[in-house]
């Protein structure tokens, strides 16, 4: 559930049909995609993902969200349910229900990684 805000920015350029080359990006974007790449390729992204998964299972978050998903699917009917609609419905509340301690822990670790890699 790590939200990647990077997907948003270059969309305007793409929508306008222009090619997005290396020169078309601002310094900030270049830095961002470079860090993002390092984040994935160093295995740190995977490690943090595993950590998040473990923490969410540990605190009961996953079981709660799973129960909510089940209830919603039963509510709208299996035929009408799609993954996208499910995510749209459950995401805001589930995102808010992630305990602060876990958010802080992960944020600290991600921040550490970023500061080490810039």
């Amino acid at each position: 559930m790590l939200r990647s805000s990077t997907n948003a920015q270059p969309a305007a350029a793409a929508a306008a049909g222009s090619a997005v080359g290396a020169g078309g990006q601002s310094k900030e974007d270049q830095l961002r995609s470079r860090i993002q790449q390092a984040f994935i390729e160093s295995g740190e992204a995977k490690r943090i993902e595993e950590l998040l998964r473990a923490r969410l299972i540990d605190c009961g978050w996953r079981d709660n969200v799973k129960a909510q998903c089940k209830a919603w699917i039963q509510h709208v009917g299996v035929e009408a349910a799609t993954v996208d609609r499910l995510v749209e419905e459950i995401f805001p509340e589930a995102r808010g229900a992630v305990p602060d301690v876990i958010q802080i822990e992960l944020l600290t670790q991600i921040r550490d990684f970023v500061s080490k890699n810039t």
């Binding site: 790590l2 990647s4 990077t6 997907n7 920015q9 270059p10 993002q36 790449q37 994935i40």
Partner: peptide, 10 residues
Amino acid sequence: ACSVCRAPGR
């Protein structure tokens, strides 16, 4: 990574 925006994101 995305062929359009180059983000290796989710």
